[in-house]
């Protein structure tokens, strides 16, 4: 797969069709992958593809990265789950489909964290998203690299995140509250969850608006709660469960639980799942007279 990927990247750069290929490369010790930006066809051999390719590189397509946008049309190496975020970016008019060349990688799963890699991809080191993945064959791409995957996801989603949500749902209000207060208490306000998310593309986040200061910047319980709730709310109906925020969080806050719960709520309320169709607008940005209003009491 790597060879085909490199060849494709080379062609794209040589023909001038794209100016940069955003993909994965090795770190110095070749123990971890890290994002690379290939602008010269001669460097295309730096591209790698393996189960350590965890990052959702679609974040680099956003307006947070003006320098990358200025390089010219990009090609991006993307797994199916990463493509979901690209789809959301298109539906939210961040760029047009033709503005990006998607090199879709067929995928048999990645590791939850690179540190877990011991040379073999075992189910227990894969994130919940991979066990339930219905986009192992990329659903939107200019080219697909790799053998077709024959994986079919379980009918009822299964895995750690779903189990934990079920367990939490069965607990009382007060219990749930104390669970989250405790989890959020560890937050150090590094905003890695926001920065790594391709859907958190605001140039001025609400946390940075300080006249007045809507969200307290202090990492005390009040500030942490307001930040984490705000982050969650701003991703309702948009988050694709790519898991980047949880992976990036240095203090292991289980953000995937928040994200997946929101996804379920949106699915129940609007029968909508984000990231699948670049022509359908997400429910939170459209209005229709027959929208449900039974929550207004």
């Amino acid at each position: 797969m790597e060879e085909i990927l490199r060849k494709k990247a080379k062609e794209l750069l040589e023909s001038g069709e794209v100016k940069v290929v955003i993909g994965y490369g090795w770190n110095r010790q070749r123990t971890k992958t890290t994002p690379v930006f290939i602008t010269d066809a001669a460097d295309a051999d730096r591209l790698v593809w393996n189960p350590l390719c965890v990052n959702n590189l679609s974040v680099y397509l956003t307006r947070k990265f003006k320098d990358i946008q200025a390089m010219g049309k990009p090609a991006i190496v993307a797994k199916g789950c990463d493509i979901k975020n690209i789809v959301v970016l298109i539906t939210e008019a961040q760029f047009k489909r033709e503005d990006v060349c998607i090199i879709g990688m067929t995928c048999e799963g990645v590791v939850y964290r690179q540190e877990l890699w011991k040379g073999e991809l075992k189910p227990e080191i894969m994130p919940t998203k991979c066990h339930n993945c219905d986009v192992r064959n990329p659903h939107l791409a200019d080219f697909v690299v790799g053998e077709k995957s024959s994986f079919t996801p379980p009918e009822t989603p299964a895995g750690m995140v779903f189990d934990k949500i079920k367990a939490l749902d069965s607990r009382g209000q007060a219990d749930k509250w104390s669970f989250w207060i405790n989890e959020f208490s560890r937050c150090i306000k590094c905003y890695a969850c926001r920065q790594v998310c391709s859907l958190c593309y605001c140039e001025r986040c609400i946390t940075e608006k300080n006249m007045p200061q809507w969200i307290e910047t202090s990492a005390h319980p009040r500030g942490n709660l307001s930040w984490n709730l705000t982050r969650a709310m701003h991703l309702v109906g948009r988050c694709t469960f790519c898991g980047e925020c949880e992976r990036a969080c240095p203090v292991n806050i289980p953000l995937n639980l928040v994200n997946q719960k929101m996804i379920q709520v949106v699915k129940d309320a609007f029968d909508f799942r984000s990231g699948y169709d670049e022509k359908t607008h997400p429910p939170m940005i459209v209005f229709s007279p027959d929208d449900k209003d039974d929550f207004i009491k």
């Binding site: 890290t34 990265f65 990358i68 920065q195």
Partner: peptide
Amino acid sequence: ARLTRKCIGCGACTF
């Protein structure tokens, strides 16, 4: 730019 454009600008490293 070449070595660090991949930085996403979080505060994790400094914290």
